[in-house]
Amino acid sequence: MVEEDTEIDCVLRPMNCEINLLSRSDGSTMFMQGDTTIVAGINGPMEVKSQKMAYDKLSIEVTYTPLTGPAKVDDRLIETYIRESCESAILVSLHPNTMICINLQEVQDSGGLLACAINASCLALINSGLSMKFTIAAVSCMIEKETGKIIMDPDNTQLKNAKAEFTYAFDSINKDIVCCHSVGRFSQSEFLASVDKCKQVSQFIFDFYREITKKYANTV
């Protein structure tokens, strides 16, 4: 319903988002970061099967569907990351004995898929109106093999000569790390430097969320 096209600095690829595009879901979004695109839909809070019921909190189920074929081990990893980060963001104790389903569909992958998936699910959560402690923003970065330079939000071609690859998610209040994923070899100082840089860049994503909400709140 709201289409947004904002060029955010040169450090991040341009982000694009359409909110509330699925009619049956309680909250949904199509989120693009560069060419990486994900559609996310949220259903719930709804009735829960007895084996998954938690008597003191909301249980969260995440289903990630890749572009082709059935979900593999890597996709299960994405599901786990999203479930854990969303659980920290949502006020889970407000809806005991219920569950929400987060469904994600990969549309295109050109690097930074995990970060894109986390951001898409956060936007869908915002759209669904579920009570949250804070919003989360995920940023990916890499360390180049030859130069050792930190490149923010790399795409597929840049990732080919990466020494290490990181994805971090931050909360919106204190910018603490909510989730962290890394691939490759790196030293401690490189790790800390990349955390620092991503933390600064995450503000752009929070600003983007706010802008989207602003556009949307004004139309309704």
């Binding site: 509330n20 309680d26 719930g44 809070p45 006020l91 109106g129 949250m132 402690k133 969320y209 709140a217």
Partner: peptide, 26 residues
């Protein structure tokens, strides 16, 4: 703290609430 996205509103005498979009009934 705010826990929903929307517009913050106030009504006299001192009632504060967030006007948000929602589809699922609680």
């Amino acid at each position: 703290y705010v826990c929903k996205a929307g517009i913050l509103k106030r009504r006299d005498p001192a009632v504060y609430y967030v006007d948000s979009y929602q589809k699922r009934y609680i």
